[in-house]
């Protein structure tokens, strides 16, 4: 029977909900689900994931206070080997992408990145070529490492809380050190968690366009704001806002693509959204091919009108 270890991610004392997708994917294989929380003062995080696991292992050590790939890979591998894990999972977040290949190397395990479906205990589907192709891959090693595309797996229902137990970890010698983290400060929901996203394309013409036109719409809908690569490259928005093949992959209930042409690389990051609205003055823009509703028009006129109309419609 399979034994799973799910590496739980957290930031600034809060659970990264993307981690729950890894529990959901592991449950599809079947077997026992163990979770691992590394850090310092992470008792609350362990409690938060206990309803999804048989057992939560909590490894607290000064050497894993900051999430660095080298010491983390050693601790994760040690715990995985100690419990006889057959599968080690994490969300395909930036942190998961950084860390898990290193875990795979250390465990001498094959790895599948960013999987979108579980076929059986060794076979997985994953998007390739920016999501233009879905590949089915088989991992032939006894131990397997998998990162999970969070938007493709619904968070599991909470069960009875599993046991929480501390585990001693030894980060070993490391050639890496943490210097600092500059968080993007925002009152808005995180892109990955938002129910509604308003995304800016080059049509917004500059940071002023985002501030004066898109922000009021986002405020009305309690939405997160995202952007195309062109907008981030131009410095009109922080890099952290980028949605697409090389940025974030999102799947909110409602996605507004505003002044956004819909390049393949962008669409790869948002086409899983439940309802897509495109507003663009170019009727030929490729974004209209993926939109559920398209409106051809000047965003500087349409968006303020839309903001008012939505306010009224919501009463």
């Amino acid at each position: 029977m399979a034994t799973h270890l799910i590496v739980v991610e957290h930031q600034s004392g809060k659970l990264n909900k993307a981690s729950l997708s890894a529990f959901a994917a592991a449950a599809k294989v079947g077997g026992d689900l163990h979770a691992l929380v590394l850090g310092q003062g992470v008792g609350e995080i362990a409690k938060a994931v206990a309803p999804y696991a048989k057992k939560v292992h909590v490894g607290e050590h000064a050497g894993v206070k900051d999430r660095l790939a080298q010491p983390y890979a050693k601790c994760i591998t040690d715990v995985a080997n100690a419990i006889g894990a057959t599968h080690v999972w994490a969300a395909a977040s930036n942190a998961g992408k950084d860390l898990m290949p290193r875990v795979a190397a250390r465990m001498d395990a094959a790895m599948a990145s960013d999987v979108s479906a579980v076929v059986d205990e060794k076979t997985f589907k994953r998007p390739m070529w920016a999501g233009n192709v879905i590949g089915t891959v088989e991992l032939t090693t006894a131990k397997k490492v998998i990162t999970v595309r969070p938007t493709e797996f619904t968070a599991p229902a909470a069960g009875a809380a599993g046991e929480v137990a501390s585990v001693s970890v030894d980060p070993g010698a490391s050639k890496m050190s943490f210097v600092k983290f500059d968080a993007v400060v925002s009152d808005r929901p995180l892109l990955q968690d938002a129910r509604v996203i308003v995304a800016a394309g080059r049509g917004v013409k500059g940071p002023e366009g985002i501030k004066t036109v898109l922000e009021p719409l986002a405020d009305t809908l309690s939405a997160a704001i995202g952007a195309s690569r062109a907008v981030c490259d131009a410095g009109w928005a922080p890099n952290d806002w980028q949605i697409g093949q090389t940025g974030k992959v999102v799947a909110p209930e409602l996605y507004f693509a505003v002044g956004l042409s819909g390049a393949i690389q962008h669409v790869a990051g948002m086409k899983g959204s439940k309802c897509i609205v495109a507003i663009n003055k170019d009727p030929e823009a490729p974004i209209f091919q993926v939109a559920d509703y398209g409106l051809v028009g000047d965003l500087f006129k349409v968006i303020p009108e839309l903001t008012e109309a939505i306010k009224k419609a919501k009463g």
Binding site: M176, V179, F181, D240
Partner: peptide, 11 residues
Amino acid sequence: EADGGLETVAC
């Protein structure tokens, strides 16, 4: 380029 901001590390 990390989730939620910029992280600086030294190797």
